[in-house]
């Protein structure tokens, strides 16, 4: 079973890194190891789908600190904690903050591997969504200022006539803009455009 996704192991214990990478490589994963959280931040690629298996207690930056750091970045990696002295509050907090799993050492290989596989799946989806979103963003940014204005009102559910009144132009002009928006955004229907807008997090101006 070949995977393109990388597994990033972050642990301060060289012997464990060695053992885990042996195990995961035997499963066919692409494994990269890091001796500390800082080391990972320096070298690790976080914008590709994959999994990060993270120890909590490390000298320097702890696992949860790295996790929080990654949340602030556009990270598509699934985060799996693997720690020797995890407790329930710590696990709950980690999951709430978006970790995929929280395992305690020593973890059984099957458990670890299934978690990693889940994580990779999730990462892939995340990566795909991220890709779609990126496309939409690019398309949205390609719109002119007037077109973006028109789009906001359209997804807000206003008829063309009303939009024209608000913008102080004739209805025909709005129709032209609207056609361009649909074309540029790649939306085949109004419903799809609304969906896109939502994904982009645009503030829809509701009809009054």
């Amino acid at each position: 079973m070949k995977e393109h996704e990388s597994i990033h192991l972050v642990d301060d214990e060289p012997a464990l890194l060695k053992a885990l990478s042996r195990l995961l490589r035997s499963e066919g994963f692409d494994v990269k190891t890091y001796g500390s959280a800082e080391d990972f931040l320096k070298k690790g690629k976080i914008d590709r789908p994959g999994c990060i298996v993270l120890d909590e207690s490390m000298p320097g930056m702890a696992g949860t600190e790295l996790h929080r750091e990654l949340l602030g970045r556009e990270c598509v990696l699934s985060v799996i904690f693997l720690t020797a002295h995890g407790d329930i509050p710590m696990g709950v907090r980690a999951i709430k903050e978006g970790a995929t799993d929280f395992l305690t050492k020593p973890a059984k290989d099957t458990e670890l591997i299934s978690c990693i596989k889940n994580g990779i799946e999730k990462s892939r989806r995340l990566f795909a969504e991220q890709a779609v979103l990126n496309t939409l963003r690019e398309r949205h940014e390609a719109l002119s200022r007037r077109e973006r204005e028109v789009m906001e009102h359209v997804v807000g559910g206003l008829p063309n006539k009303r939009i024209a009144e608000m913008l102080g132009v004739v209805e025909q002009t709005i129709k032209v803009h609207r056609g361009r928006v649909m074309e540029k955004m790649g939306a085949e229907s109004l419903a799809q455009l609304v969906l896109f807008a939502e994904r982009l997090g645009l503030t829809c101006k509701p009809a009054v």
């Binding site: 464990l16 053992a19 042996r22 195990l23 693997l82 002295h85 050492k105 020593p106 973890a107 290989d109």
Partner: peptide, 23 residues
């Protein structure tokens, strides 16, 4: 907790190594 770490760490190493060898 520290001691758990101290003991679990080698146990984790042993387990993973053994599983790798098994595979």
């Amino acid at each position: 907790s520290s001691l758990a770490h101290e003991i679990n760490q080698p146990l984790a190493i042993i387990l993973s190594n053994a599983e790798a060898a098994q595979r």
